[in-house]
Nucleic acid binder design. Structure first.
Lengths: 239, 239
DNA sequence: GATAAATTCAGGGTTTTCCCTGAATTTGGG
DNA sequence: CCCAAATTCAGGGAAAACCCTGAATTTATC
């Protein structure tokens, strides 16, 4: 039995290592990595049955590392360790894991029992998803509330503070098209239009950002990545 | 020597307990509490020299707990443990700690050495602030960039998605006054006006929210508290 | 391939946000 | 008490965001 533990924080690595050592029966080999890049390299080298991946890591996020590992070694059991129940990450993970692949999704405030359970489940071919995220997953698959890629794109743009016109330019669309996307987005988020609400009048744009943050559809660190990408493309390949 | 450790996560409590036991010389008594309310009670009862407080806790936040403890026992050394370098919290803490009071501010990704250092510093009457927050503190005291209470209030409102008109109603102001506040806010955040920017056109409202999040002036959980308060006041004391 | 759904785009109208100037008022120190 | 700074408020104007309807296209799905 071999396990790869990937986390940039020593404290968490120690905790996991201790936990797995005491809870998993049989001989156990543990490898460690400190970031996504190391994780991919180590996985290639040692081909562990199980990989524990922190989401927030320098160089390569846990999700991206999982993607690369699974593309080479689809048999690997992946367990994601996350601090939040962010819908963004669940969405991304969903795309990355092969249809018949196995994965676990554990929040960092999980009990030791839960982590051990998740590890065992994934090893024996089952998925294990933290209770409380089940809800998020459901939403991820629900047509009515699940955002399309287009809507998500628009969401990120307004969250960064772009105007309709800027968004249109950047995405090669008309302003009207952008407004269409936004309208659909507001509807899915359940934001009332002007005068549609009994007691509170909202600025839909800002309200959409707020609610999306609340639901974990977007979060600050994701946005910051998007920003650097969007602004870079402008400076580099300027018109 | 007595220390009170307050954190709702067992893992972190254990970590801190082990750390302090091994690093602090002399006989050591450690008390524990799981939330802000318990913390205040325990502090009253045991009068520890040092209190370690997590910021995010059920019932009473670390800051508020610190406020109550310091109002009764101003001699207590308070060390805040936070996951982020959020400016909101530093601002709040600044107000709560008496002018001659002692406090520490440690990020949770701090090394064991740093935590031990912070504990010793506070015990011997010095403040200890995590490197990287120094910058935030400076900004907190800088006239030009530091937000006034009025601007902060406006910021929270737009971040929640309220319109100018709604804000005016809620704060008993004119729409024009609200716009004044917002204008000042945008200026302090350094957001370019229409056409003032060479390459990107921003929706100032959303941009302000984004940048404030980035700088830690506001954050999601704070906003959610504000929301429940603002919406409650409407339903309860209507008109 | 046909149906349904999502997406783009248009025209034209209303409201909101943002801009500029400027004055009365409040606030905090010296 | 007075100055300087912050704050509130006003009027009027330009731009952006939102609303409605409706049609042509693309995209999935059966």
């Amino acid at each position: 039995m071999s396990v790869l533990i990937v986390d940039d924080e020593e404290r968490d690595r120690l905790w996991l290592k201790g936990l797995l050592t005491s809870r998993l029966e049989g001989p156990l080999t543990i490898y460690e990595a400190h970031d996504g890049q190391e994780a991919v390299d180590a996985a290639m080298k040692y081909k562990p049955q199980l990989v524990f991946l922190d989401i927030k890591m320098p160089k390569l996020s846990g999700i991206k590392a999982a993607e690369q590992i699974l593309s080479k070694l689809p048999e690997t059991g992946v367990v994601i360790l996350s601090n939040f129940s962010d819908e963004v990450y669940v969405r991304q993970l969903w795309k990355v894991v092969p249809p018949n692949g196995v994965f676990g999704y554990v929040l960092k405030n999980a009990s030791d029992d839960q982590v051990a359970e998740a590890a065992k489940a994934v090893l024996s071919g089952d998925c294990w998803i933290h209770p409380g995220i089940a809800r998020v997953i459901q939403r991820t698959q629900n047509r009515a509330t699940n955002l399309t890629a287009a809507e998500y794109e628009a969401l990120v743009c307004i969250a960064l503070g772009l105007t309709d016109h800027e968004i249109a330019t950047r995405l090669y669309l008309t302003e009207k098209a952008v407004q269409s996307r936004l309208k659909a987005l507001y509807a899915k988020l359940g934001i009332p239009g002007r005068g549609e609400s009994p007691d509170v009048d909202f600025n839909q744009r800002c309200r959409a950002v707020y609610l999306s943050n609340r639901r974990g559809l977007i979060n600050q660190s994701e946005l910051e990545e998007w920003e650097s990408r969007l602004l870079a493309s402008r400076t580099t390949a300027g018109s």
